[in-house]
Write a protein that binds this DNA or RNA. Structure first.
Lengths: 273, 273
DNA sequence: CCCAGTTTGTTCCCGCGTTCACAAACTCCT
DNA sequence: AGGAGTTTGTGAACGCGGGAACAAACTGGG
């Protein structure tokens, strides 16, 4: 499976001295034919661009051709000043005194994010969650094309999911190489996640969306985003507990819990998928 | 209007609450000497506490009784200084020169988050994703008890999911009231999300985990956390595009895309579920 | 008992992100 | 054409979170 991926620029395999180059600031070429210094959109802004994109699509669906920053901001659920500053990082795509052209801005954001391209994606681990992801229209409708569903369970091999079939995990490297996959989704149990991750990375994947409840270690240059469903609930629980503590005095159950119970209750967590 | 809700500490004006103080007297050392500034754990810290909790559980599984901040930090994938500062907000649960007792710290974090309690949860929208959530062991294993699965599709009524059965959406209010549900999970299509949200809120739910790709508007005092699977992928795509742009010179394709193509490509997005 | 070694808890500093406020720029009406 | 009204884009202030560095506190050995 050497796979020496041809395209994709060779992916800087060595990259030399240990990952220090997490951020190269010296980038000589910037002029060429550019007009805007596109270098360096803040991470917080990048995380919001998809939200704006979705809001713009909704507005376009309603036949709205132009919108002000205030309207778009409320549609996206953010502050209008923040929205304007975010958009200013992309360039000046609005018109003062008028607002933003919905279609135009929609395209600009889509291009900036990269969803005007086609991104081949492989999903590994077709359990309950992987099943849901494979059928999630939000993926395929936004430039992400699922090229393979992989699972290590031989019993599931060939099982149809949506319009695809589950393939064996042994095909991972070949598929990644053939379709030039850059983005991988891990939906396996925690125990298998790191192994799958390693195989994806050596195959050439440089971006990973991890649903497994474990910390993945990857070499520098590989991006990992983690989505942990139970963590979100726990954060809500914390705030809920706060609310319950401040207002009513009614709930005076036992705040303490036997340590034995805790052991039993939490012991199973480690192998949660 | 709808100017930023998120009144974290601003709310709770009354705070009357003589009874709430009976929370933890079982604190010999901290009793009256040091006023515990437990009010106000930074949001960023709260978001990491579940990660630490998971790491501690993993360590406990391996039979490790004590760990240093360095060990726990690497297990959680964070900086050790950050970990110590985070834990310092909870109190002084470590021992200098020694480290942290795994079981003790695990319990303290679990208590702080609130997962030592039992949180009844209702899931609305049992499509692919709701199905996965209902079977997600990460929920039930951490104090969250799913009390009902609701769906508006009459054809699905009574369908077994895991050990439960799908019930009709019309039972929402009764179930929320009966079980005193404070946390609701929305996994419906975007179009139905706001309506479900409103019913949950009027029923008494004050924390919502939203998987629908839409912005929910809720009254002050209600927390909403949003998990958007496609947004995560788009963020990865952005960085991936960046990587591909910086290295190779073969980027001479067309950065422009026909507007007609764009219309077709993005038009479908709005109705993604 | 005292000293060396270890590790936590905390303080200080810095950089990022958010927000305010305003000049610049565009439209529309007279 | 010119002024009034709007709305964008951005400079500056500010608060929060991250990281390093250090004092405090505990253990263990002699």
């Amino acid at each position: 499976m050497t796979s020496t991926r041809s395209n994709r620029n060779g992916a800087a395999p060595g990259e030399g001295a240990g990952g220090a180059a997490s951020r190269n600031e010296a980038r000589p070429e910037v002029s060429a034919s550019t007009r805007v210094p596109e270098r360096g959109i803040p991470e917080a802004t990048v995380a919001r661009l998809p939200i704006y994109l979705r809001a713009l699509i909704t507005l376009a669906e309603r036949g709205i051709a132009t919108c002000s920053s205030e309207e778009l901001a409320t549609a996206a659920g953010v502050n209008s000043a923040k929205l304007r500053k975010d958009l200013s990082y992309l360039g000046s795509y609005g018109t003062r005194g008028v607002g933003y052209d919905v279609e135009y801005l929609r395209y600009q954001i889509a291009r900036e994010i990269g969803v005007t391209q086609d991104w081949p994606v492989v999903i590994v681990g077709i359990g309950n969650l992987g099943h849901a992801l494979a059928n999630y229209s939000g993926f395929t409708s936004r430039g992400f094309r699922i090229v393979a569903l992989l699972d290590s369970d031989p019993a599931r091999l060939g099982e149809p999911v949506g319009q695809m079939r589950i393939r064996g995990i042994d095909e991972l490297e070949a598929i990644v190489d053939e379709h030039d996959v850059a983005i991988g989704v891990i939906a396996t149990p925690a125990a298998a996640a790191q192994g799958v991750c390693d195989r994806l990375v050596t195959g050439g994947v440089t971006s990973i969306l991890n649903f497994a409840p474990t910390v993945l270690s990857v070499p520098a240059g590989v991006d990992v985003r983690k989505v942990d469903l139970s963590i979100e609930l726990q954060i809500l629980a914390y705030h809920e507990q706060r609310k319950a503590m401040s207002a009513p005095a009614a709930q005076l159950a036992e705040p303490e819990l036997a340590a034995a119970d805790l052991d039993g209750a939490l012991a199973r967590v480690v192998e949660s998928a």
